[in-house]
């Protein structure tokens, strides 16, 4: 195992809303080692993006973040003053956002925005900053980098802008990159290129990569480990091959059943769906969050909060009291019974 880059333990986000207190992230725990790609998956509204923003300390002003431990390498990020946090952000950890079309400032050239990132943190000259920008633009697959530096965001396509965002994230050589659905807003053909590039750069620069996505196809290809989130909680985590081979949580199994498999899924066959909706996260919910949608729910599921427990080594953890039954095919049995 490589050096520990990111440690997240019991991360919580609370946001006061009109109806009460919203708990979009409830005790999220995971870690990232150098050279690892950790994918956070889950459907919309499960708290993935807020988890990313919470790590970067970029939450909306009204949101309150707490954590048992939140560390970047040996540096704690919890309770750090904003000025100190700004020194870390963009320097030792960087973020890539979902919307490349709006994430670059329309008023400044690409070059200005790239160079600014390194001039802020490192004692380099303007010339060296430009050199680094040209180098990285080339590295992320942008041709004629020198000319591109003089262009404005509106002169670039979405795919190119996302490449610029990636280059920008790499300017200071961070130990960790957090990418929040970096390909969602892009054309399908571009999506694959961008992901391939991210995976490649992650290996080349030997960084930790947190990739937030709801595309399990992506996860299968580039993840080292997977964190499955549901309604603000981690419901299952472990090495990617194990999660895909033998999911232990009914939600994970449901998610995987949604993917059509070429050669296996028959033409015209219905894809899997998870019936029901994500529960409201306003107020306390002291029992299994998935209970209302779970096909194998039992009374005990609604009796008490379900802890995240280790399952058979290799860092595998599941938040389900019927995990053993799920592994044994309880869901399939429930499906045929229904």
């Amino acid at each position: 195992m490589g050096e520990r880059v990111l440690t997240v333990e019991d991360l919580r986000v609370d946001i006061p809303v009109a109806a009460g207190m919203l708990h979009p992230v409830q005790g999220v725990t995971f870690h990232v080692d150098r050279g690892e790609t950790v994918c956070i998956v889950g459907e919309s509204g499960c708290g993935k993006s807020l988890t990313a923003l919470a790590i970067m300390d970029l939450l909306p002003r009204s949101a309150k973040r707490t954590a048992m431990r939140l560390e970047l390498q040996d540096q704690t990020l919890d309770g750090v003053a904003e000025a100190r946090m700004a020194d870390i952000r963009g320097n030792r950890m960087a973020m890539i956002f979902q919307e490349p079309m709006t994430s670059l400032n329309p008023a400044y050239t690409i070059g200005n925005q790239l160079e600014e990132a390194i001039l802020r943190h490192k004692p380099v000259s303007r010339k060296d900053a430009r050199k680094r920008a040209v180098h990285l633009l080339g590295r992320v697959g942008i041709t004629a980098a020198e000319q591109r530096l003089r262009q404005y965001p509106h002169q670039l396509s979405g795919g190119l802008r996302q490449r610029v965002m990636i280059a920008m994230a790499l300017m200071c050589g961070p130990a960790l990159i957090v990418a929040d659905e970096p390909t969602t807003a892009l054309d399908v053909t571009i999506q694959a290129q961008i992901l391939h590039l991210l995976a490649e750069l992650q290996r080349e620069f030997h960084m930790g990569l947190v990739l937030i996505t709801h595309d399990l196809g992506i996860v299968a290809r580039i993840a080292t480990r997977v964190v499955v989130m549901y309604a603000g909680e981690v419901v299952e985590t472990g090495p990617v091959d194990e999660i895909f081979r033998a999911p232990r949580h009914p939600y994970t199994q449901g998610l995987l059943a949604c993917i059509p498999v070429p050669g296996k899924t028959r033409r015209g066959e219905r894809l899997g769906v998870i019936p029901g909706m994500v529960p409201s996260l306003v107020g306390e919910m002291p029992y299994c969050h998935f209970a209302s949608r779970c096909p194998i729910v039992i009374d005990e599921c609604r009796a008490a909060p379900v802890p995240l427990t280790s399952e058979g080594g290799r860092g595998r953890r599941v938040r389900c009291i019927r995990a053993a039954d799920v592994a044994a095919g309880a869901l399939q049995a429930a499906g045929t019974a229904a």
Binding site: E82, A86, S103, N105
Partner: peptide, 22 residues
């Protein structure tokens, strides 16, 4: 509240710079 201001903050720029430059 726009995305590029969040990007500027994610770069670690000082608040004054975010406010007046971006």
């Amino acid at each position: 509240s726009s995305d590029y201001i969040r990007t500027a903050r994610a770069k670690g720029l000082k608040p004054m710079r975010v406010l007046f430059k971006h």
